[in-house]
């Protein structure tokens, strides 16, 4: 069973407090600082997880919050938490950065996380050779598939959170994650020539 990122889940009371804070920030940019402080680290880690350079990641994160402040008046609570909204901006800003080729997409893996990827193949043993094949396969995944692997296995995000961030249904998240795993598995097998 996977552990998930508990930071994402908030009680009704916390959500209400946050809505209050957002309403205040809509009126007064100074009030946005509370939200900035609350979510800076989460968003930074999300961005930096996909980048190679701290300073460039900082720039992207600044753009994320700047865009959030500029578009805050358009934010309405319609069942999607504010954090998911920020992640969507971050996702968009990252894609923009990669499209412009100004920054290199990076996959940052902790080796301890690799066994958590649930490859459905008995032949796979997590030996060093197999780990290398898995890492190589990860780099060959499409951006879409890679996102789901990163969300679910490297960042331990719940299906619900991924659903909110990606703006797709939870069922779609499960299906897409499954497809990503299948694709990854096929690439690993190809690498190992099994």
């Amino acid at each position: 069973m996977q552990s998930t990122n508990s930071q994402y889940h908030q009680s009704d009371s916390q959500l209400n407090d946050e809505l209050t804070q957002i309403n205040l920030a809509k009126q007064n940019p100074e009030a946005f600082e509370t939200l900035y402080n609350k979510y800076y680290e989460q968003i930074f880690r999300y961005v930096y997880q996909r980048m190679d350079d701290v300073d460039l990641a900082r720039d992207v994160v600044s753009q994320v919050f700047l865009k959030a402040m500029n578009k805050l008046n358009s934010y309405e609570f319609r069942g999607v938490p504010f954090s998911a909204w920020l992640y969507r901006i971050a996702y968009s800003e990252l894609n923009q950065a990669f499209r412009e080729n100004s920054q290199t997409r990076t996959i940052n893996i902790e080796s301890s996380q690799l066994p958590e990827i649930e490859l459905d193949d008995e032949a796979y043993s997590y030996s060093e050779e197999h780990k290398s094949a898995l890492i190589s396969a990860l780099s060959q995944l499409s951006e879409k598939h890679l996102q789901f692997i990163e969300f679910r296995y490297f960042e331990k995000r719940s299906v619900r959170e991924v659903s909110d961030i990606m703006n797709i249904s939870e069922g779609n998240v499960k299906v897409s994650t499954h497809r990503a795993l299948k694709k990854l598995q096929a690439l690993v097998i190809k690498q190992l020539d099994l």
């Binding site: 800076y40 930074f44 997409r105 990076t106 996959i107 893996i109 080796s111």
Partner: peptide, 29 residues
Amino acid sequence: MKTPKVNIDRPHLSSKDIQGFKDFAALKQ
């Protein structure tokens, strides 16, 4: 998109490190 670069076990950034990157005043400007 170019082929992604892969980092294994990149040095971890602490919360303190990340908190130090914040600059709300600059953002406001």
